[in-house]
Amino acid sequence: MAVTGAVLVLFLVGHMVGNLKAFLGADSFNEYASFLRTMGEPLLTYRVALTLVEVVLGVCIVLHMWSAISLARRAGKARPVKYAARRKSQANGYAVHTMRYGGVIILLFVIYHLLDLTFGTVNPAGWDGTPYERLVEGFAPGRWWVTLFYVVAVVMVGLHLRHGLWSAFQTLGLASGRSYRPLKLTAAAISAVLVLGFLVVPVAVMIGVIK
């Protein structure tokens, strides 16, 4: 859970940095998108490096989900009889409520996101558009509900990370009592930066800053 989560976080950071290129204009953004495909050339042929990254990411997502599902299944087995009284969280319930349900929402979002901006299936610019066109048309002001969905999902990712980042340190035995506060603050800060970094592009498109 912790290791695959860590890989996915690193990916998110790179993804966000790339997204922000949208502010540098269509050419820069498209160039970046094409760079992703030609990475490693001429040593590697077209898209090999990217495919490798995609495979690693795919495996991580699968393993991350598999870990989550097996934890949930173990939890179910460990408590076959539920409490009659609604169990009251004594630790403000944050992790209990965001991680498992949040994870499912994030998964649905990732599927939509790929169909939207990677494959263009549900994007008005379609498969034939440039990445920049897909971006601008996808978040066009008329499609505010898409942007809204993105906002909700990305905030969910942030909440997921806020617990996940700290939790990874704990699971890997890297945390100690004294480092809890700084770790939790760092986790919150990273999550906040990522949320802002990811949201600024679609919002900019929607309100017409990026055209």
Binding site: S70, L71, R74, A75, K77, A78, R79, S89, Q90, A91, A95, V96, M99, H163, W166, S167, F169, Q170, T171, G173, L174, A175, S176, G177, Y180
Partner: peptide
């Protein structure tokens, strides 16, 4: 079950055993 670091355990612990024991 497995630990997902929810912190519910330490919150109800009558002796306040801290969560960092789990990290250790």
């Amino acid at each position: 079950g497995g630990c997902t670091n929810t912190g519910e355990c330490t919150a109800v612990c009558p002796k306040g055993i801290p969560l960092d024991t789990i990290a250790r």
